Amino acid sequence: MRANIHPFEKYPFDIRKLPADIRSEVEHFEFYTTSRAIERSIAAGNLIDPNTLLCWAYFTWIDAMELQTEAEILSSGESALKIIDEILEKEPTHKPSLRLQTYIRDEIKKVHKANKRYDRFHNIPVENLSLEEAEDFALFLSDCANDEKFKEKEYRLWQRLYNEKPDVFVEERTGRQYFGFKFYYLCRIASVLWRDLGRFEEARPLLWQIIGWPSVKDAELYSYNVSNAIEVLLLEAIEKRDEAEFIRLTGLMVSKFGEINAYRRSSGKGELTLIIRENPAGKILEFALEIGNPGNIRTIIDHFFAGKHVFIRNEKIKKNMEKAKTLIS
């Protein structure tokens, strides 16, 4: 094991007791790929033994070491802790899990302690920060703040960056061009308004602006934001029981990813997989079954659940998938 990314001298799980496919993934470790492959095997085999789950938690945490940024440590750390909670719920004294839990919690505490450097920014008006400080502070608030007043400040920081920062930046030393800043900041603004501040009427036109963004080059760079914008509107259509809008949006999701992948093919890149998280994907499938439109059900099964990175552990969703496949077979 490489000492610079692994926290312990030995794995906290027993590699000899892992299923053969998972053991192979561990032995041929790659950032993000290994943890996803382990998750896929766990979902496929409905595996619940502590050793295998701990292996998944461990490599979910190790993904944070790819970039070693605060955001990755917080994100991967919280994901790993949720898996460990699942183990400890069944075996509260499972020592290897408790050891990894303690380690990850300590690393997360270090991040929060380091972020005290942003304390001085809290009382500085948004317009008085440099653009570099504004972006740094906005990213910090995105990762670490939940309070409404801080989310309001985050919203204003992204708005300032959208208005003032050039859409394209060229690095003087290398000549490398970075692009898509306007689209990225717009996505951040819409997300804070919708998810954190609940200002849906303000966010809705921005979501449609994201979906209809004229530059496929930008949309391809941040494709998750396109699918996320449509996902948000899909879930709203479900809440409103708006069948026609739901069917329209599922078709739009496929269409937009078709445009993005056509651009990628023309650029010599591989196609992207449409990935919807398990919980919203389950709600989308359940509502499609309620509507009972065979074409709509086929669209969802063929595109929302077809990717190799789609992992379903929820038994209700698995049953609904079988039901859906029977209906369209």
Rank of each mutant, 00 (worst) to 15 (best):
R40C: 04
N115S: 11
K316R: 11
L274D: 08
N46S: 12
E202D: 12
I38W: 02
E70T: 06
H303M: 02
V111L: 01
I84L: 05
N46K: 13
E9W: 00
L67D: 15
K17G: 09
R2T: 10
G45Q: 07
T34Q: 03
F169M: 06
F246H: 03
E278W: 01
E278I: 01
Y224V: 02
R204L: 09
A288T: 06
S142R: 14
A262V: 00
W61T: 08
A145C: 02
K325I: 13
I291Q: 03
H112C: 01
F29I: 05
F31I: 05
H122W: 09
N4R: 12
E9H: 11
T33Y: 14
H309E: 15
A80Q: 06
K90C: 03
R117A: 08
L67M: 12
S255M: 09
Y11I: 05
E133C: 06
T250K: 03
L88H: 02
Y184G: 02
N163P: 00
A80K: 08
L81W: 04
F179W: 11
N320K: 10
A134K: 04
L274A: 02
I210M: 02
A114L: 06
A64G: 04
D49C: 07
F8Y: 03
V168W: 03
T250M: 01
N4E: 13
P280L: 10
E78Q: 14
R23Q: 08
F200P: 00
E135M: 08
Y118F: 14
R313E: 15
D119A: 12
A64S: 12
E107R: 14
Y162R: 10
T326C: 08
G292D: 01
E148D: 11
A64W: 01
A37L: 14
A37W: 10
E72W: 13
I48S: 15
N128Q: 14
A71E: 13
D242H: 08
S24N: 13
N4V: 11
D218P: 05
G198K: 07
Y178R: 13
I108C: 05
E243W: 08
A20P: 00
E271P: 03
F8Q: 02
E132L: 07
I189L: 04
S223F: 15
K113S: 13
E27K: 15
G45R: 07
Y32D: 12
V168I: 15
L206V: 00
T174Y: 08
R264H: 06
V168T: 14
E220C: 11
A20E: 13
F200G: 05
H6E: 15
A203P: 01
M253F: 04
K165P: 00
D167R: 12
L100S: 06
L221E: 14
L206T: 01
G175V: 09
R99I: 10
D85V: 00
Q177T: 15
